[in-house]
C-alpha cells in the first residue's frame, strides 16, 4: 500500500494520554480498536493510510465493561462483541435483541475482535449495533481533552462512514436507559446463507407493553430513506404507540404506514422492491418476536 511505511502507531499510557495525542495530531490520526474494519478500508484503498494509528488496546481494561447502574446501561467502547455475549445483556430478556444481533454478527472468531465502539464508528448500514441501539435510544459518550459530550446515536451517525465525532474525540461509552420490566427487544436479519452476511434488510424492535397495549415502541432499520445508514421508522412507531397489539395492527403498520417512510435501493445483490417487502416482513416478525418475549412465550 502506498505510504504504509509512513504510518506509525501510538500506544497511549492512559485515556488522557490518548486524548492528548489525538488533540495534538488530529486529523492525521485514526484510533484503532478491533481493527476488523479499519485495516480493510486501508487495504481496499477506501481511505488513505493515516499518519498515526492510535492503538486502543492499552485502554482495554478501562473501556471494556457492561454495567447497569442507577437505571442506566453503560457499555465501554472497547467491549468486544464476544464480551457482550458474556454480560447481562445476553441473560435478561429485555435485551434479547443483543442475542439476535450476536447470532448473525460476522463469524464467531470476528466476535472476539470486533468492538462495540468500532461497530458504531464504522457508521454503515451494516453496523448492526447501531440499528439495535437506536431502538434503545442510546447515546454515545465522546471525550476529548476539552471535555465530555453525549450525543444521541441518531445525531452521531450522519451518513455512510460519516459521524459527528470530532477528529480530537474518542467514543468511550455507549449508554441507554434501562428498559422497563415488561419490555423486550428483537433484531431480524437474514440472507442467502446463515452467517457472514450483510442481511437483505435488518430491523430492530423495542417494545414496551402494558397488558396488550403498546405503551412504547421503537423500530429501526439498516436504512429508512435516502441515506444508507440505520435509522428509526418514526412514523410507524407513532402509528403503533398506544394501540392494542394485534396481527391486524401489524399488518396495517407494515402495509400502510411503513412504506410511507421507507425507501429502498436496487443494487447488484437484490432489488428495492424485494427489500421493501422484506422490510415489511421484518417489521412484523420483529414486533411479534419482541411481543412473545415480553409475554414470556419465547
Amino acid at each position: 500500500m502506498v505510504g504504509i511505511e509512513l504510518v506509525s502507531i501510538y500506544k497511549p499510557k492512559s485515556l488522557s494520554d490518548a486524548l492528548e495525542f489525538l488533540d495534538k495530531n488530529a486529523p492525521d490520526v485514526k484510533p484503532i480498536a478491533g481493527g476488523t474494519e479499519l485495516l480493510l478500508l486501508i487495504r481496499d484503498k477506501k481511505i488513505k493510510p493515516p499518519k498515526y494509528l492510535l492503538d486502543l488496546y492499552p485502554l482495554k481494561k478501562q473501556l471494556s465493561y457492561v454495567k447497569v447502574e442507577n437505571g442506566i446501561v453503560r457499555i465501554g467502547a472497547l467491549t468486544t462483541v464476544y464480551e457482550l455475549s458474556q454480560s447481562i445483556l445476553h441473560r435478561d430478556k429485555r435485551f434479547a435483541g443483543f442475542v439476535d444481533v450476536y447470532d448473525k454478527f460476522g463469524t464467531m472468531a470476528l466476535r472476539f475482535e470486533a468492538t462495540i465502539g468500532g461497530n458504531l464508528n464504522a457508521a454503515t448500514q451494516y453496523s448492526d449495533y447501531i440499528t439495535l441501539m437506536l431502538v434503545f435510544d442510546a447515546s454515545v459518550r465522546l471525550e476529548s481533552v476539552k471535555g465530555v459530550r453525549e450525543l444521541k446515536l441518531s445525531e452521531f451517525v450522519l451518513d455512510k462512514r460519516k459521524t459527528a465525532l470530532n477528529p480530537n474525540e474518542l467514543v468511550t461509552e455507549v449508554v441507554f436507559r434501562e428498559p422497563p420490566l415488561d419490555s423486550s427487544s428483537s433484531f431480524v436479519k437474514f440472507d442467502r446463507r446463515e452467517i457472514l452476511i450483510a442481511g437483505i434488510v435488518t430491523e430492530a424492535t423495542y417494545l414496551h407493553l402494558e397488558g396488550d397495549t403498546i405503551k412504547d415502541v421503537r423500530i429501526s432499520f439498516d436504512m429508512v430513506a435516502g441515506r444508507r445508514i440505520p435509522a428509526r421508522a418514526l412514523k410507524t412507531e407513532e402509528f403503533l404507540r398506544g394501540k392494542s397489539f394485534t396481527s391486524d395492527l401489524l399488518e396495517e403498520a407494515a402495509e400502510k404506514v411503513l412504506p410511507s417512510e421507507m425507501s429502498r435501493v436496487t443494487d447488484w445483490w437484490t432489488t428495492a422492491d424485494y427489500r421493501l417487502e422484506m422490510s415489511k416482513v421484518s417489521l412484523k416478525r420483529g414486533l411479534k418476536l419482541a411481543y412473545e418475549r415480553v409475554k414470556g412465550v419465547r
Binding site: 502507531i9 500506544k11 484503532i32 478491533g34 494509528l53 464467531m108 472468531a109 472476539f112
Partner: peptide, 13 residues
C-alpha cells in the same frame, strides 16, 4: 486464548 484472524491483527499491537 482467543481465536483471532491473524490477517486482521497487527503484530505491533
Amino acid at each position: 486464548g482467543n481465536p483471532v484472524h491473524s490477517c486482521l491483527a497487527l503484530t505491533s499491537r
